[in-house]
């Protein structure tokens, strides 16, 4: 069996603050895996550590069978791409969509740019009309679609999703989640998705890990969570909280 992402005893330390305290997990190829937790749980740090944006103090990260060192090479970024949380912050304010999508192609010296850009825009449901717009001419949902197109244009096999819909309205969230599921199915992608919302994770993922204070609380399958078959109190609390306010 091959693991798309295998993490062993990962520690991340920022100025003596231990953001991740020895976390291990394994994401199978083609699987959609969720990380759930509240702020400070280290779920986003884990994604950053995989991409090389956070300092790894110890532990190993293996992607598609290849152990990663301190730095990531260009080949890594063709395998792994990421979609950020804030659609208003993740697009360069002075670049058109066209320029944004051209950049990864230019960096990796990919020739058939025109075709790829058009295809990527079609794939995320934007079409040619959006190609020459600036970020400020797009709504939040459209921006997130552009961010997804940018992540897909290098044709990665793994997509890291950092709360991709938490800044969007509920109706737009549904559209973006549907789009993500669709591209995953079409491209047979592996997802590693972070969210604070249990409902989104159970909707999107087959397995998940609950995190708290930089540690793994427990690992569950979506159906275990749906059936409330959880063993930790913290998870139970989260489950209860996700059902909304209950008057005592």
């Amino acid at each position: 069996m091959t693991a798309a992402i295998a993490i062993q005893g990962l520690e991340v330390v920022f100025d003596r603050f231990r953001a991740l305290k020895g976390v291990s997990l394994e994401v199978r190829e083609g699987e959609s895996y969720g990380l759930v937790g509240e702020s400070g749980s280290g779920k986003s740090t884990l994604l950053k550590a995989i991409t090389g944006l956070a300092p790894v103090a110890s532990g190993t990260v293996t992607v598609n069978g290849k152990p990663l060192g301190k730095t990531r090479d260009k080949a890594f970024y063709r395998e792994v791409q990421m979609v950020f949380q804030d659609p208003y912050g993740s697009l360069h304010p002075r670049q058109t969509v066209d320029r944004l999508l051209q950049e990864p192609l230019a960096i990796h010296g990919i020739a058939d740019g025109e075709k790829r850009i058009e295809r990527a825009l079609d794939e995320v449901g934007l079409g040619k009309g959006f190609r020459f717009r600036y970020a400020h001419q797009l709504s939040g949902g459209q921006r997130q679609r552009v961010a997804i197109a940018r992540a897909l244009i290098l044709e990665p096999s793994i997509l890291l999703l950092d709360e991709p819909t938490s800044a969007l309205d509920a109706s737009v969230q549904a559209e973006v989640l549907n789009l993500l599921e669709e591209v995953r199915r079409r491209r047979k992608l592996t997802f590693l998705m972070v969210s604070h919302d249990l409902a989104i994770i159970t909707h999107m993922c087959e397995r998940l890990m609950v995190m708290q204070n930089g540690e793994a609380v427990e690992t569950l399958t979506a159906s275990q969570l749906i059936g409330h078959r959880v063993s930790e109190d913290y998870t139970r609390n989260l489950l209860r909280a996700s059902e909304g306010f209950v008057r005592a």
Partner: peptide, 22 residues
């Protein structure tokens, strides 16, 4: 109704999620 429906809910599997047709 659309606003109520389009949110994912634990234990109610719907793929794809219904979207709002404004």
């Amino acid at each position: 109704r659309g606003l109520l429906n389009c949110m994912p809910r634990i234990g109610f599997e719907r793929h794809p999620l219904p979207v709002l047709d404004r």
